[in-house]
Amino acid sequence: MIRVQNLTKRFDQFTAVNNLSFDVCPGEVLGFLGPNGAGKSTTMKMITGFIEPSDGKVSVFDMHVSQDPQAVQTIMGYLPEGAPAYGEMTVIAFLQFIAKVRGLKGEQAEQRLAKVIEQVELAPVLNKPIDTLSKGFARRVGLAQAIIHDPKVLILDEPTDGLDPNQKHQVRELIKGLAKDKIVIISTHILEEVSAVCSRALIISEGQLLLDGKPDELERQSRHHNAICLQLADEYADAQQQLASIDQIETVEAVAEPEDRTFMLFPKDGQMLLPEVVRWLDDKQWEVENIHLEKGRLDDVFRQVTRAQTV
């Protein structure tokens, strides 16, 4: 288990991380969400022992990071922001270097290297210098070095940044495949990633923890939770006002995209109103082109909580 207690980091006048506390258990994939400069990377740097906290402490499986960083780093894999790697080295030489540092030898090293190269699909570039790789490959080299020793704890700072959609998907599958008994912490500002891979999300802004919950719990806090998106097939007079008169509907907003005659119906208190709405439309004999239920939008929640903070 990772236990972060009252973690604080101050740089001169600026407080990057402010009294942050949370626990992460094996099997969890924790997503750090937050605007740029929220303190996500700084928190990760403290968990991995790269920088010292100004206050508070981090322990990983009861080992204190500040007291024995090497012991913690041994069971940890870390992809720093931007996936730094020695550019003049070839991919294979770099991975062999990491394997050596990780104490992998002989047969075992060969096997782990082969496995990781297959997992992140590095085979085509093994003998190329890292400097010459595309951003996607460079990022995958960073991932490979982080997982080469099959670590119990994996810390990934923006693992899918700069990847194309296929590569993103692939990396997410990889993370999901890993996570069974590991602790995984990823930071991201891509909200769909949280729903896609995380079992739990923390929203951080200005160094403080604002929300902590499962992605669907967070989505439920969105005003779009159980909202109904309705596209009418025809023009009806005063459609918006009429829709707003449905029982338990809070407000109706006209949505210009993707087409006209589309409305977003927000229920009171996030209630499930789809059956009522369908019945109502039936009564009115309005033709419907398209109707669907919104699960809730993480970006709503994200904006709500992070904006409130800024104000």
Binding site: F50, Q70, P80, P84, Y86, R102
Partner: peptide, 14 residues
């Protein structure tokens, strides 16, 4: 300059 120091210092090297 390249940021590899973060990698180097978070490997269990000391």
């Amino acid at each position: 300059q390249m940021g590899t120091i973060e990698l180097l210092m978070t490997l269990p090297i000391g």
